[in-house]
Amino acid sequence: MLAANFLLLSAVIFCIGVFGVIARRNAVLVLMSIELILAAVMLNLVAFSAVLGTIDGQVFTLFVIGVAAAEVGVGLAMVLMVYRNRRSIALDELSEMKG
């Protein structure tokens, strides 16, 4: 297989995720777009692991899986707290800290 196959696929998924982070208004959907970005990065790491013939990319991928799980847990807890305080998770309404 061509190495560029994996890399181009992960670039496409990454860009779709970036679009989701910019366009979406609901905080949970933004977290899902961040998951898309992380999946693209992990695919990239595994692809480089295969290209270079070393194990390090896969080791890093498992680290990223662990950190992403922690990120989702804390992120959703924060979304839940915002919802409980404001009855809304629309991101454009969270503007208290705007200067």
Binding site: I22, A23, R24, R25, N26, A27, V28, L29, L31, M32, V72, G73, L76, V79, L80, Y83, R87, S88, I89, A90, L91, D92, E93
Partner: peptide, 21 residues
């Protein structure tokens, strides 16, 4: 976790139901 998050935060959002900025 995501499905629980959706379930716990699902209400009519503010002015409209818009999903996009």
């Amino acid at each position: 976790l995501f499905l629980f998050g959706i379930m716990l935060t699902r209400a009519k959002i503010g002015s409209d139901e818009g999903m996009f900025n």
